[in-house]
Nucleic acid binder design. Structure first.
Lengths: 113, 113
DNA sequence: CGGTATCCAATTGGATACTG
DNA sequence: CAGTATCCAATTGGATACCG
């Protein structure tokens, strides 16, 4: 019976993109427009954000509401399914906070820049 | 003040390897030898496991104790630092369980095999 | 048995250019 | 403003072979 293993992989598959968890976390505070998300995550690249949003939508974690205006306006929000991640997301933040030095590998990565 | 963003990334960096969270989860039950971990995660490849264990060790999440015997015997266990992840890991399992259909993308991936 | 050392294939993040 | 469509560079998982 290794359902646990499968369950972990299911969750990781959904949360582990370079910025996915961060995007989801931002959306826990409420609906955001594309540009707003981008502004709140300065380091993310335009194209990257689009890709990750699309995957999150395909995975059923977020809603995408597009207004037929010019200029376009698109809003993203969590689905119920995605909202169930809220608790997990706060724990991601907390663990990172309690161990707030970066990981050894992340440090190494930064030293190179 | 976007410490949250940084914290999430810190945590993800440590947990997001194809099998890292699973390995950590297995180790929450106690110390395991290399071969035992491999047996408990049948799909993982020898070389992949070695790489991920090394990274987890570098990140300070697990201890590696090698016995100078022939044949070799190596045991892995969680550090205190890694043990703090336990709570998070159980939540990964729970979310996956409550949403136990695979993600849409994961399903697609499976259909191809 | 558990490990190193190489090399390779696949994935993924991101750069660039163009659209309504 | 938000989105396609390409293409590319970097990373990562894994295959293979050999070692103490």
């Amino acid at each position: 019976m290794d359902k646990d293993l499968e369950n972990i992989k299911t969750t990781l598959d959904v949360v582990c993109g370079k910025w996915k968890a961060v995007v989801l976390y931002k959306l826990t505070s409420g609906t955001l427009r594309f540009g707003e998300i981008k502004k709140q995550i300065p380091l993310i690249k335009h194209q990257t954000l689009i890709k990750q949003l699309k995957e999150l939508e395909e995975d059923g974690l977020i809603n995408r509401k597009s207004y037929p205006e010019v200029p376009p306006k698109v809003e993203y929000s969590l689905t119920d399914y995605g909202r169930d991640l809220e608790y997990l997301l706060t724990h991601l933040v907390e663990w990172g906070n309690e161990h707030n030095r970066l990981s050894y590998r992340a440090e190494k990565e930064l030293e190179e820049t």
